[in-house]
Structure formats: C-alpha cells, structure tokens
Design a protein around this nucleic acid. Structure first.
Lengths: 355, 355
DNA sequence: CATGATTTTGGGAATGTTCCCAAAAATATA
DNA sequence: TATATTTTTGGGAACATTCCCAAAATCATG
C-alpha cells in the first residue's frame, strides 16, 4: 500500500474497465468511445498517473535512451558537446544519460556495462586517455547497439565517428608561428593513446618540415594532460640551453598553464615566447594576453555525433554503413602570438584572417 | 532473431537448466551446486550476458537511479556539483541521470515527468530562474520520491535542502568594499525568483545600513542573468550622473562581463571602480585584474545534497525529517578590489585574511 | 537398504504495459 | 424484429527477472 505508484490497473478498477481499454485511452488509440477516453484521462490527471517507462521498455526492447560517456567534465568542451547532442536527440524523442569516466579505463568499463544493463539504444563516446583496449566497446557493437565516437576516435573500430581536422588545425597553428618569425617551436603534446593527439603532432611535424625547419626531438614533449605536469614540462623547456621561442600546446588548459609559468618568469609574450593553444576555450579570450588558438565547432561536434547515431538507429537494414565526419577548425589569432591590434582578447575576434 | 540480447533463459536452455537455477547462479545465491554455478558463469561470460536492469527494476520497483536536474551547464558551477554528487551516489550503488532544464520552466516540467516515468528513486534539483510554481516537484514529493534542492532552494516545500550562506557571503563582500573606502556600491542582482539572489541582496543591504551608508535604489539592478543584458546595465550604471565606485555582482560571469565593459571604457580597476563577484569560477583567478569573489564549496554542495538524499532513501520510517544544510562561504581578495600584492590572480590565493 | 534430512532444482506468480484476437455492445440494414 | 456490420471492450500472452514453494536429487544414519 505504501509508496505504490498509480498504475493503469488502478485506473481500470476504479472506472470498471479493463486495463486494455485504459491503455488504449491513454495512448490515443482510435477504438475507444469518446466518453470513455474522457473519463480515463480525467482520472489519470487527477491521480497524477505517470506511465511506467520500465514496463514499456521491457516489452518493446527500446528504451529511447542514449548514453553519452565523456572522460571529463570540467573544461567547457564536453559540456558543450553534450548540450549539442542532447538538443538533437531530444528533438528525435530520445533521452540522454550522461556518464563520465573521469579519464579512468576501469570506470569506463564499469560505465559501459551499466549502460548495457540499462539497455540504452545507443552510445556516444569519447574514450579516456588510458584506453588502449576497446574490447568493451566492441562488445556493445556486437550486440547491435550503435556506438559513435567523437573527439577521441578509434581507428580499429568500424563505426561512425566525428572528429575535427586536427592535422590541419595544428598545421595552420604552427605555420602561423613560423610566419611570425619563430623558429624554435616546441610542442607540448598529449598522450600517444589519443588519435587527435597523434594527428596534431603530425600537423606540427609537417608544418616544420615543409618550411625547412628541422625537427628537434628535445622540443617535443608528450604528457598525460594533468596540469601540474604541464607546469614542470614548461619549466623544463625554458631551462633548455636553447630554449624555444614558441610553444604549440595540445589544448587551451595546457597553453594557459604555460602562459602562467612564462609570465611568472618575467618573459614577454609573444616577443620572447609565443603560445598557441587548441579549442578556443571561453577563458582564452579573457586572459591577458589573449590566447591564439585553434577553434573547433564544439556544439556541432555533439550535434553531428547525435545525427550519425540517429542514422544508425533509423536504418531498417541490418547495419548501415558507418560514416566519418571531419569538421573544420579555424585559427583565432590573439595577443599570445601577435602584438599590436587587439592584444587582449577582450574584444570579440570573429574572423581575423591568418596572414 | 535479429538484435536479440542474451537472456537468462537462453543460458538455461543451452545448459538444460531452469531459469531459476541460472538466476541463482548469477546472483550468487548459496543454494546452487558449485559445478552448476561454474558452468553458468562461464557461459554467461562467453556470451557477454548482461542482466536486464529493466526487468529487475520493474519487479523491485527500485531503479537505483537518481535524477539530477540543473538549469545550465556552461559555467563550471553545476558540472562541479554534479561530479561531487555523482561520486557520493556511485559509492552508494546509485546511477545518475543528468537533465538540464536550460533555465526553461517548460523544459523543467517535461524533464520532471520524464524522470518520473523512468522511475528514478530520487531527484536532486536546482530549479530554473523562471520557476515560480513548484507543483511539479510537489507531485514528485507526494509520490514518495525524495527531492533535495541545492543552490537554488525553495522555501515553500518541506524537503531537504543544501545552500551556502548567501547572506553572509554578500555581507562580507560589501563590507570589504566599504573598508577599502568605497561608498557608492552598486549591486547587479539576480532575478527575484531565486532565493539565493534575494539573500545576497539582503546581505548587501544590511552591510550598507550597518555602516551608515544610505541605500540608493538607482544602484540596485535586478536582471535575468543573460550576459548581454549585464553589459547594458553596467553601461547604464556608469552613465549615471553619480556613477558607482564599486560593483557587487550576483555571480562571477556577471562580474567578468562588467570588468570587460569597465576596462573597455578606460576606467581603472579598482581605483575608479572595484568589482566583486560570487562563486570563484576558475576563470576569475586568471583574468586581469584577478576578480575578488565570494567562493563557495562547490564540490561539497553536490556531496552534501547526495548525502541528504541518501538519508531520505535509507530511512525505514515513512518520511524522515527533512534536513537543511547551509555551507560557509569565503571571501577571496584579488586585484579587482585591492591594488598591490597579488594584483593578478595568477598566483594561488588560498587564505588571505579579510582585513 | 530404507528412512529422514539436506541440498539442489524446477515451476509459477508477479512486476506494468502493449498488442492481438475474440467477445460483447452498439449501430445500421433489410 | 432479426441479421449484418461496426464500434467498443475484455482477456490473455509477452517482455526478463526474482522469489517462494514444492519436487527431485543427493547424502547421511541407523
């Protein structure tokens, strides 16, 4: 008696109807007498009846729920992606369950099983930096539940993916530094396990090579994206016998950490050392100097990933062809690489041409 | 046939057992022959069996899932709260579904129904700025599903709540401005619908009154928290015949927007006009000058809210007494109110005494 | 080798809903 | 009024699982 939720049968009993009729009335089935439907709807509203989605999902084997798993939650990137995806999915009648793996491989596996147990209809994933074995995602795929990767994508799985043109973004960033006269350009790279980290490194390399600048391995540091380590590595770079005159960082938080270190050592930005980040975090336009960065269409990444997932769900045939979407990046030039006009990022910088 | 998930019955058939025995083996019931249990577990692992949580939830009427609804997602505040809550809830064996109402009353109602339909065991809420009617939450409460409010709390409902001491935080912030010699202190306040907005306004008022500074209604502007409007109101304040010499903003994004406007008009901060925010957003330590702000224990708000919810869920008796937790705030002094040492926020400022 | 005790297994109900098919009621037609 | 047709309603099965109770199998004891 206590804590009993109103069911279709409760309504049926009080109205002297069968559960079938009540069900029909509530779902809008045509074969119900108008008067009956009214009585049912009225009582349902009065009792605050809420259909039990669990029972329906059990019956139909579809939960109308999508799981989104992200490795972290504190930078603005993933929340924005989630908002974009959620918007598209909600319009298609899907709910969203958000998991965060906290950059932990173990947690990622647990979350995957959880999503599987709660029978989500599909999963959007950006995997952790620790993930090198993708067996848990392959299991999901094998069960016929579509998986779409975004941002951090996986070469070895044949599923839909959304990425930005990391290579091109990095290439343009480094080329920009070269054109401002920099020659010893360091790269604070991400872990080798991340595909986008590798692509950005390749873009960095090729930009240098194509401009006849030798690659100095001492200037390339790959790290695990924890900011305290970034601090250490930046200091290390600055202490080199031949310190760099520019730094291309894997992402904006890293670049901002570098900027703090460099300022605290009394070096001038960009004269002594220029900095470029990646992602155009909102914070990057507010700090001083404004951070030059490679912006990516964050919201659109989420929307596109959701669309690809819906494509997989909508398809009638067994297993539709996976799609790969690569979105463009755009270099945003601010005071951390160029002096003069707009040294702070405070004024909005919508479309400065890369010179 | 296609897309069929492995069930307990599939396992039972292949092993010539009954579903009961398989169920017992999988759930760790003692009355199963060791050999049998081994056979079952082996086959389950081989087939990637995942228990169907839907069926269990339907049976037990408990989903082990908590819904968290927040009004927005882009500032760092709510993601941090969610992480805190999720940590506590996960350790207690609960899953988390995150909804964001996007500051829309309509969306909030839809989300509430959705959470009800998916039979969450409890709900953590920070309501939208539009919400003035709480009937949808009262319905949840009436159904015996515990609701806990955090950050934006509701006086008219007798449920557990977590807040910070908004009054005291605001009082200290304004008192700090007065002690630095400011006299015309403006307040860019939030909408009257939010309890914390009202408390901060009261703190502001009382601080002025207790220091024999008359309250000038022209210096108090209540707005809807959309940043473009903040821009307009700050300009309005600066254009007054007697412009303010300090500004206390309802939150850090508002304060930062104000800071941008003030800097772009060539005024000096804090000499011409000092600024104080609320929340200590990570960005506030990075901008120039660093933003003086009232910090709140964001992570702890989430953890505490989760704990209060677990208290409600754990209780055996009908309806345990609701609890109210008020967490302390702390004034963080940076360059936007004080010149001299540490004018930028770049160095970490852990415990500067308020003088 | 019976008999009783214990361990192990199987069968059915229950959870809340939808859908199909049949039954009943209402309506139309002769 | 009787029959045919349509509209409306009711009764089950199905979904995957757990739990209770009974049945079967195993074991121990005299």
């Amino acid at each position: 008696m206590k804590n009993h939720q109103i069911t279709i049968i409760d309504i049926a009993h009080t109205l002297n109807l069968s559960k079938s009729t009540v069900s029909r009335a509530l779902t809008g089935h045509p074969n119900v007498k108008v008067k009956t439907r009214e009585r049912v709807l009225e009582l349902a509203a009065e009792l605050d009846y809420q259909r039990n989605q669990l029972a329906i999902s059990l019956l139909t084997n579809r939960t109308q729920t999508i799981g989104i798993m992200v490795p972290e939650f504190l930078s603005s990137f993933f929340p924005k992606v989630i908002i974009g995806a959620q918007d598209v999915l909600a319009k298609a009648g899907y709910n969203v369950v958000i998991c965060h793996s906290n950059e932990s491989y173990e947690t990622e596996i647990i979350n995957t099983k959880l999503l599987l147990a709660s029978r989500v209809d599909g999963i959007l994933v950006s995997h952790t930096k620790e993930t090198r074995n993708f067996e848990h995602f392959k299991t999901v795929d094998r069960k016929g539940i579509p998986v779409v990767f975004f941002n951090r994508i996986v070469d070895e799985m044949s599923v839909s993916k959304v990425a930005v043109d990391d290579y091109e973004g990095a290439y343009q960033a480094v080329e920009h530094l070269i054109k401002t006269g920099k020659r010893r350009i360091a790269h604070l790279s991400g872990p080798d396990s991340l595909q986008n980290s590798r692509s950005r490194l390749n873009g960095y390399r090729d930009a240098l090579t194509n401009h006849q600048i030798p690659i100095d391995p001492a200037l390339i540091i790959s790290y695990d994206l924890t900011l305290d380590k970034a601090n250490i590595y930046v200091n290390h770079l600055l202490n080199l016998p031949q310190p760099p005159d520019a730094l291309f960082a894997i992402n904006d938080p890293t670049a901002i950490e570098a900027l703090k270190v460099i300022k605290s050592r009394g070096l001038r930005i960009p004269e002594d050392i220029a900095i470029v980040g990646f992602s155009d975090d909102p914070i990057s336009a507010l700090i001083e100097p404004g951070l030059t960065t490679v912006s990516q269409p964050v919201d659109e990444i989420g929307r596109e990933a959701a669309r690809l997932l819906l494509n997989q769900l909508a398809a009638d045939d067994e297993r539709p062809e996976p799609e790969l979407v690569v979105l463009p990046t755009r270099l945003i030039i601010r005071g951390s690489t160029v002096t003069g006009e707009n040294p702070t990022g405070f004024a909005d910088q919508t479309s400065l041409p890369s010179f």
